[in-house]
Structures are given as C-alpha cells and as structure tokens.
Amino acid sequence: MTELLFRDDAYAKDCTATVIASGPDGVVLDRTVFYAQGGGQPGDTGTLRWPGGEMPVANVVKGGEGGVLHMPAEGSDLPPAGTEVTAALDWQRRHRLMRMHTSLHLLCSLIPGAGVTGGQIGTDRSRLDFDLAEPPPKEWLSDRLIALAAEDHPVTTRWITEAELDANPGLVRTLSVQPPRGSGQVRLVRIGGDASPVDMQPCGGTHVARTGEIGRITVSKLENKGRQNRRVYLVLED
C-alpha cells in the first residue's frame, strides 16, 4: 500500500519515498504527496527525481491493493524498484485545485437538500450538477460564494466510523459517487466551527486550510441538463 501523506498535510509539496514497483503503467511508491485521480478531482502532476534520473509525472491514478500509480510522461526514464526518489508536486496547479475543491463545498452549502449528481474540478473552471428543479439566481450564488470565502472559515478534517456515517446519511451529498467503504473509517471535511459548520461532508480530496485562500470565485454559468438536473459552473478570477 502507498501511504497517502496529503490526507494529513495537503500543503506538503514533496517527500522522499522508495519505489515499490516500476513499469510502463506507472511507478508505485511506499509514500506520496501526490493525489490520485478520483471524486471529480484530477490526479496531481509533478516530478520524481533520483540520483542521475528524473521522471515527469503526467497523472496519478489508483492502482491495485491500495497502491498509487505515478504515470510517466511519454518517453520518460523510470526509476528501478528499490530506488529512493524525491516526489515533488507541481504546486501551483495543486493549490489551484485545492482552492477550487473547497469552493465546490461552499457551493453545496448554498443549495441545501439538493443531491449532487456529478462534478468536475479544474484549475480555472469547475462544475457541480444538482438534482434540482430551479437553482438560485447566478448573481445571488456568486455574491454568497465571494462572501463565504472572504469570511475566512477554517477547513478541517477528521475521521468518523462507517457506523457514524450510516447514522447520519444526510452528510452524503453526492448521489453518483459514494464515500469509499471497507476500511471502517470515512474522512469528513468540515468548513467552519464545530457549533455551526458552513458545510460538512465526506471527502477524500485536498482543500485549503481557510476559505480566505480561495480568492474571488464566481458562478459563470447555469445550465439545464435535464428535467431535474442543473449544472453550475464556477471560475477562479485570478
């Protein structure tokens, strides 16, 4: 299994690791700061470096038996199994994805009760689809998102048991993707304080530490994707 360092510290930009397996499908490390594609969030990009070699990482995906595959750019050299490498993120890209992902949680808080039927996170534009007949006006959503971000709410994580999640089914907003089960624990992301959180839901992705880091985020477009499906696009303005 690959130890997922970003779960405890999303701001770790690099780490040393040992290559467990290496091949054309990807390189598996014993530990990594790279996020593996999933839940609408793209896999990280960056570089693996070792004495005398370097491999650009084009994408990262989940492998078998809890491993994470760091996929090489075409034509790259691969580090042999047993090599100690430095795994370094493209931090600017990762941080923009963190800002975007946290923004989508804020958007969920503004449309309570509506299930999320799909989503996609990008560095400049992201979207969520809601099981909803009529969304709030675009201008209202933008104004509230900007205000929530500026309020600089803390963003924290904690682990709950699967039994706790089953006792609180309303925590799950996504209809198309359910939180991963089997380990006995589920990671919960909370925006705001304990007493009255702005948003709280299971999530395995990476987020900023405070909403003030998001900057100016606005709703750029609303789309009708079916009788009961509304798509909301967000854009980062810097």
Rank of each mutant, 00 (worst) to 15 (best):
V232K: 00
Q228K: 15
D77R: 14
L175N: 01
V33Y: 09
A36H: 07
K13F: 00
L145P: 07
L89H: 11
R227E: 14
K62H: 14
V172M: 00
L4T: 09
V116K: 03
D8W: 03
G204I: 10
V235D: 15
R93G: 12
T117I: 00
M1D: 02
G170T: 02
C203K: 05
G40T: 03
P79N: 02
H153M: 06
Q185P: 00
G122D: 13
I121A: 05
P137A: 15
Q41V: 14
P112I: 08
P180C: 05
T102G: 09
A87D: 03
I191A: 10
W50V: 04
R96P: 01
V68F: 00
P56V: 04
M55Q: 08
A58C: 08
T123Y: 02
Y35L: 11
L222F: 02
E151N: 12
I146E: 15
Y35F: 15
E237V: 07
D199S: 15
R7S: 04
V198L: 07
F6Q: 12
A36M: 04
V189R: 05
R227M: 06
G39K: 07
P136L: 13
V28T: 12
Q178E: 04
P180F: 06
C108K: 08
E65Y: 01
G39W: 12
V19K: 08
S22Q: 06
R216N: 08
R230Y: 07
R99H: 06
Q228D: 11
R227D: 02
G212L: 11
I121Y: 03
S126W: 04
P197Y: 08
H70K: 05
K13M: 12
G182N: 11
G39R: 00
G46A: 11
P197F: 06
M1C: 06
G53L: 02
G67A: 13
A150P: 00
V85Y: 00
F6M: 08
G23H: 04
L69M: 12
A17H: 02
E162C: 12
P179W: 08
P51H: 04
R144A: 13
Q185K: 15
Y11R: 08
P154E: 13
R231Q: 09
E54V: 12
I111N: 02
Q41K: 05
G66K: 09
S142T: 15
G53D: 02
A21Y: 01
G26P: 12
T206P: 09
W140T: 14
L89V: 09
A147G: 01
F34V: 12
T2Q: 03
P154M: 04
R210Y: 09
P42Y: 05
R96Y: 03
V68P: 01
P180V: 05
G26S: 04
V116W: 01
E84R: 13
S142C: 05
G40K: 10
I111F: 07
P135K: 06
D166M: 02
P179D: 13
L165C: 13
R181Y: 04
P79C: 01
A36G: 04
F34M: 07
P72V: 10
N224T: 15
G119E: 10
R181N: 07
